[in-house]
């Protein structure tokens, strides 16, 4: 029983961070219809946002819980704003174009920025390592530091989910869905399609940047690997397709399934042996996730929970009235 608590902590952190990234991606893809193949960009930007704040204002690890929580909130807000700005600005050149142009463009920008971050920014000059260690924000918690992080990540993720669910059921979210279905109609009704798309992209990137910031703070080490596209673009895509596009509760289920699978497989992977001298490594998980993704795409593209229409208050009232009338007739 002793080993289940670290497992649960790890699980909840992985779950929370992937939930945040996937919410960001689902707002972009599922609601606004922007095929973002460069999610790792805003994740990396979030990582980058933490680094200057820490060194400018905090310095050594804080011993005071109140200060560190204030610090955390400040970092989350700043990383959201920076992510919003980057997502907004980066998308401007290609937002008017067809989705395949947009996808290629976003992927290109993301991969190049990751290269630059990996080889130039996140290199510690003193050691030459491809990462920079930073003091742990919750160092005051002592041995319970992982528990504190697990709790924080889950709280932030669930709060974001609830806020985004509210946002996506609001007129804003419904306009995004309308844009995804038919841009021409929305434009005819006098809405600025480009602006709405850019804002959606900004919000998605901002939420992802928050996830990047949390990830860095938890690891207390800033680094972005060359496989960032796999972890922070491909897997969020897998999660939102598994859960269902345009559906945030589906994303919740999708990321939980993914986190559970990933953590379990990683824990027990070393106990397997394979024929033909195939080494057991994380690469096998890549292939497994890829095949899963293809199966989902071919056989169940709508995901676990298919998208449902949003029922606003007037529509619900009308439905109730209809039901009443039908029952009166009978």
């Amino acid at each position: 029983m002793a080993s289940i608590i670290p497992f649960l902590e790890y699980l909840s952190i992985i779950f929370g961070i992937y939930l945040l990234v996937s919410i960001g991606l689902n707002i972009e893809v599922g609601y606004a219809g922007i095929p973002d193949f460069g999610k790792a960009l805003s994740f990396g930007i979030g990582m980058l946002a933490v680094y200057p704040i820490f060194y400018k204002f905090l310095g050594p690890a804080s011993t005071n819980p109140v200060t560190s929580i204030m610090m955390l909130i400040a970092i989350l807000v700043v990383s959201f704003l920076i992510g919003f700005l980057v997502g907004f600005v980066v998308t401007v050149p290609a937002v008017r174009l067809r989705e395949d142009y947009l996808a290629m463009y976003l992927l290109g920008v993301a991969v190049i920025v990751i290269w630059i971050l990996h080889y130039n920014v996140f290199v510690c000059p003193a050691t030459g390592n491809y990462f920079i260690t930073i003091p742990n924000l919750f160092a005051w918690a002592g041995s319970a530091v992982d528990k504190a992080w697990a709790l924080t990540v889950i709280i932030v993720a669930i709060a974001t989910l609830l806020i985004c669910q509210k946002l996506c059921s609001s007129p804003f979210g419904r306009i995004l869905k309308a844009i995804r279905e038919n841009e021409m109609v929305v434009e005819t009704y006098g809405r600025n399609v480009i602006l709405f798309k850019l804002i959606a992209m900004g919000i998605g990137s901002g939420i992802t940047a928050m996830a990047g910031a949390l990830y860095v703070l938890w690891q207390s080490c800033v680094s972005i690997g060359v496989n960032a596209q796999l972890y922070w673009t491909f897997i969020p895509w897998l999660i939102i397709l598994l859960g269902g596009l345009g559906n945030l509760y589906g994303t919740l289920i999708g990321s939980f399934i993914f986190a559970l699978l990933d953590c379990t497989l990683r824990t027990y992977l070393n106990t397997f042996t394979l024929p033909f001298g195939i080494p057991v490594s994380h690469v096998l998980l890549w292939i497994g996730f890829g095949v899963t993704m293809l199966i989902i795409l071919i056989f169940r593209p709508e995901g676990v929970i298919p998208e449902k229409p949003i029922f606003t208050k007037p529509i619900r009232k009308l439905k109730a009235l209809k039901k009443q009338k039908e029952s009166q007739k009978q």
Binding site: V29, P35, F37, E99, D100, A103, L230, F234, W237, L241, V283, L284, W286, I287, F289, G290, V291, M293, L294, L297, P301
Partner: peptide, 16 residues
């Protein structure tokens, strides 16, 4: 979009 995701996935499978 679905076709693009599929080739994107194929890239990771082939790489793996």
């Amino acid at each position: 979009l679905m076709l693009m995701i599929a080739t994107f996935t194929g890239d990771f499978i082939l790489c793996g």
